[in-house]
């Protein structure tokens, strides 16, 4: 759970709100979060902000943004004209100074070779997150809904259909529009799923259901669809 890719997953989890959940206590002001993330607050106050931020997805994101911006600001120098905000004429001068020359190319090529070896040996960037294990996250484009969006689904025969890559099996996850899970299925061998009528019984006419499909291929590689929305009759 704590390899680099797992740390990424945990960070993502802390930044994901749960519908209806609210943090304990009011959020600190933006300036306070920024100062805390930049290490500009006294320890006790900073740690109080850390405690809040860890319990509040909104403030988690704010903290991380403040940290990234502080690094960017620091990385480009904290003088009166840091690179990202440098006056345009100075930017042009710096671009000119960076033009490629044979000597510069040779030096960079040597440095690149060294970096490749170093990466191979695990010397550089030891904390850099590794890519997650073959999981394609939100926005996968390989899976398409085949449900006719122009017609409501009959609730006694709400069949979800889709097309996608060749996989071993399919998992389906269905929720209401407020993310309450109502049905799921695992290990389907056909790209279709009939939502049990009893799962839809409590939903009002015209209700929308939100569904997502995961294709599971050999070696447990997963392709996740984007979210599809369908209307019930």
């Amino acid at each position: 759970m704590t390899r680099p890719d797992d740390i990424d997953r945990l960070r993502e989890a802390l930044a994901t709100p749960r519908p209806g959940a609210r943090p304990a206590g009011p959020c600190p002001g933006d300036d306070v979060i920024r100062a805390a993330a930049r290490g500009e607050l006294a320890a006790a106050r900073r740690e109080a902000v850390v405690d809040h931020a860890l319990g509040c997805p909104d403030c988690t994101i704010a903290w991380r943004l403040a940290l990234e911006m502080a690094r960017e600001e620091r990385g480009h120098g904290s003088d009166a004209t840091a690179v990202a905000f440098r006056p345009a004429d100075r930017a042009a001068a710096q671009r000119r100074a960076r033009r490629w020359t044979p000597a510069r190319v040779a030096v960079l090529a040597a440095a690149a070779s060294l970096a490749l070896v170093a990466v191979g040996l695990g010397v550089l960037w030891p904390e850099r997150p590794a890519p997650s294990s073959g999981l394609r996250l939100a926005g996968g484009v390989a899976i398409r809904s085949l449900v006719d969006a122009s017609r409501p689904l009959p609730r006694d025969n709400a069949v979800l259909r889709w097309e996608g890559p060749e996989v071993e099996s399919w998992d389906v996850f269905v929720t209401t529009s407020d993310l309450t899970p109502i049905a799921s299925a695992h290990g389907l061998t056909e790209p279709r799923y009939r939502v049990p009528p009893e799962a839809l019984a409590g939903l009002p006419p015209g209700a929308r259901i939100v569904w997502q499909v995961t294709g599971v291929s050999v070696a447990d590689r997963r392709t996740i669809s984007r979210t599809f929305v369908s209307t019930l009759d």
């Binding site: 989890a13 959940a21 996250l137 899970p181 984007r226």
Partner: peptide
Amino acid sequence: VDPPDRAPRADPGTMHASAALGEAVR
């Protein structure tokens, strides 16, 4: 309701699982 090729957006299944993990971490 979905048009066939709209831009990707948050996936509720993934978000739901991630939010639950976040609660556990807290």
